[in-house]
Design a protein around this nucleic acid. Sequence first.
RNA 1: GCGCCCUUAGCUCAGUGGAUUAGAGCGUCUGUCUUCGGAACAGAAGGUCGCAGGUUCGAAUCCUGCAGGGCGCACCA
Length: 570
Amino acid sequence: MKGVLYTTGMKQDLERAIATAVQELFGVGAVIELSRPEEQFGDYATNVALQLAKQVGKSPRDVGEALAVKIRENLPDTVKDVTVAGPGFLNVALTDHSLMQAAENKPARIYEGQTIIAEYSDPNPFKPLHAGHLYTTLVGDSIARMLEIGGATVIRINYGGDVGLHVGRAMWAIIKSLGGEFPEKLPGGTISERVAWLGERYIEGNTAYTEDEKSKQEIIDTNKRVYEVQARDDHDSPFAKIYWLGREWSYAYFKVLYDELKVHQFDRVIPESEIVPLGVQTVREQLQNNVYQESDGAVVFKGEEYGLHTRVFINSQGLPTYEAKDVGLLLTKWNDYKFDRSIVITANEQAQYMAVMLKSVEQFAPEPAKRSMHLTHGEVKLKGGVRMSSRKGNTVGAIEIIEAATKANRTLVGKDDPETVLGAVKYAFIKNRIGGDIIYDPEESVSLEGNSGPYLQYAHARARSILRKAQNAANSQQLTADSHLREGERTLVRKISEYAEVVDKAVVELMPHHICTYLYELAQTFNRFYEHNRVIGDKRENMRLALVARYAETLKTGLSILGIASPDKM
RNA sequence: GCGCCCUUAGCUCAGUGGAUUAGAGCGUCUGUCUUCGGAACAGAAGGUCGCAGGUUCGAAUCCUGCAGGGCGCACCA
């Protein structure tokens, strides 16, 4: 189900034209890959001559020279010049006119017609929301947006563990803390306070589970009771009342985070309890078919045959582990959506686990398994690479991050400015490549300067300010009306023309940080242009207004893929 | 022990199947301002791209080994 790049736009036209030239000159086929060299060398570059040299039996430079002549002949309107550089690289300079056309290119819709499931965020009820949840939510949100840019119909799914040992741990400590099963004794206060209280209980239960054998047994029993509450749909017993209330609080609190972050709404929230029956039933059925095996009273999948490892799907108590639940989840997605692709986004600690789960499903349901992929990101760490742990008491809460950023921004700017705060926080998290761990630096995440969200927003607001002041002629002119560009103008047009290519790359690789890197360069290029070139009152005002308008739109569209707002004024 | 991932300037990171001086931001130092918004711009200092081999005309980028760090490896999620 890999996306195939559509061949549209200036870059693809050029690639085809060069391939044709190769065919005409040497009678061989070649895949041309154009890159963007530094501006002084041209607008596009290719190393095709070096690749062909051996095959054709000529020196790379000779191949390059011959190609350069041919390309100039074939594309007199598009190409201003083709030169051979170094060992045989071809540097291609576009005419100003075609460069301006390239600045109008739109990203390819490589997922057109596909239904793609994006599952992300996945917080568990009864557990605190920490920095990692914030991060994974933002990554998922931007990736889902990228899939939409690529033309897909995206189903956003949020999956969470409302049953399982962590709930047992929390419930055990809650009951202990209440002095018995007394739902009426549950604390009041704001939703944050109540959830904070739950979080403390979870940590207590967690500690007791690892440190005290008797408590551990009690927690295991409590866990079973939670499954029974679900199975019997019990809403009346005091135990059940506590459970449902705690779950409700958690969900309410998740909503607080999503609202604060202004992320796109989920299409569906799937609690684990919903897919447990299908998961268990499926695993038991496939036990008959020998996909899964019994071992020490548990049901396992032996991954060793596939270079993986063995994992337990149903434990010896007869309760499903995360594994069996994920089987149920995957099949539920498949039954309900018949997706073309399903992407699950989590931290990388789950990478090998997920590989085992998918491999097991592949044995009896190959289609959904093959169409699934697991995209992982790193952990959020503190400055100096310090890992957060509730035991050390150095965890950072998800909402705490937004609150701290809001406060810091207030003292810096003197007013509340949620769009700037969110711009700063989101950009700080998304600008790094997915995969490695990222460092949460509270100061950097509220920074207004340099490579930051607010820098980009400011570079947008500045441009809008110019356009506001010159409303008259401004928006009527086409960028391509003037066929000759001055130096600073050309640099900006050239940068804008990279937009569609960068987004394509980000969408294909599912790497939002490419967009961050590019937009920062774009904003930088504009700020330089702004410093050195007058727009209003200049002889070239009309052309430059069209350029500024094109730039502002590009930046705004790009930021929207990251879920970052572009206010007209700041 | 086995598997996977990571190691680029003081800090935080881009760049990863070839190239021309390895790029940013922060921090440090120095400039620009009777300016369409200074949340800006211009410049300086700062790197044997973890170490050692190998392939190549050419390696931060590919291969091998080593070191350091992270994650996972049966009833947690």
